[in-house]
Nucleic acid binder design. Sequence first.
DNA 1: CAAGTTACCTGACGGC
DNA 2: TGCCGTCAGGTAACTT
Length: 277
Amino acid sequence: MPELPEVEVISQGLKPHLVGRRVEAITYNGKNLRSPVPIDLMRTQLTGKQIVKVERRAKYLLVHFDLETVLIIHLGMTGNLGIFPIGSTTARHDHLCWRLDNNLELRYNDTRRFGAIHLLQLPENASLEETFFHKTGPEPLSENCSAQYLHTKATGRKQPIKTFLMNTEVIAGIGNIYANESLFKAGINPCRPAGKLSRKEWRTLLDNIRSTLNWAIECGGSTISDFINASGEKGYFQANFKVYGKTGLPCGNCLTPIKKIQLSGRASFYCPQCQKK
DNA sequence: CAAGTTACCTGACGGC
DNA sequence: TGCCGTCAGGTAACTT
């Protein structure tokens, strides 16, 4: 579920429910996530504190409190966040719950528990970018991620372009679905060595990454259920997949069957005709 | 150093 | 019906 567009949609959906609220209590079922859940720290540092800002960076959701305190949530493969009335029925795999001062609570659900929760207390004069995100590449939708930057970064790399696009240290937030879909739109073969793309091809690829991500955000990403208001409507971008999961089906452009291969251990889909180069 | 593999975890699905 | 292998939107720690 959660690549950049899904986290963006979740962030936008949560914002009106969270900003300005105070956390009253936190519950945790004790199950391990990918890294230890800082439950004691959260209870001492967040209880009674007000949420001042909610935003997304890469595939992370950032919940800012006053006093330089930031709750950082990563959804892994199956994580989800939702707003529910206090006391309403909980779901299987609800692991954490932050009770708010408006009779609602934020719940973290994660079947496979590949997600992670961090609590960061920024030292003065330090930014999130300099600390938690110091190894994280630029946002594909931001201006500091240019075709020039990517072209330079890829110099000498023999790694397949698709794997390169999924490297968070190079560019942040592109997962398996959007790497596949963006390469199809750009007409570039996922196996091409990253260092062999021309400046012009990088320009085309970046344009297509951006249009794919923006389109997915407009579509509401993939399905996100259980929000209590209209902002939680299900996403429908999966209806627009051109290659992801389409093995053997005819390409929408040329009818050639979509091929599935493994690249760096990840399923990769492409049209052998439209993505020859 | 770059690039590939494994581990983390649950559940859905297909074959037998 | 059930058992088993395979696969799944991510990432970090390994190995090669």
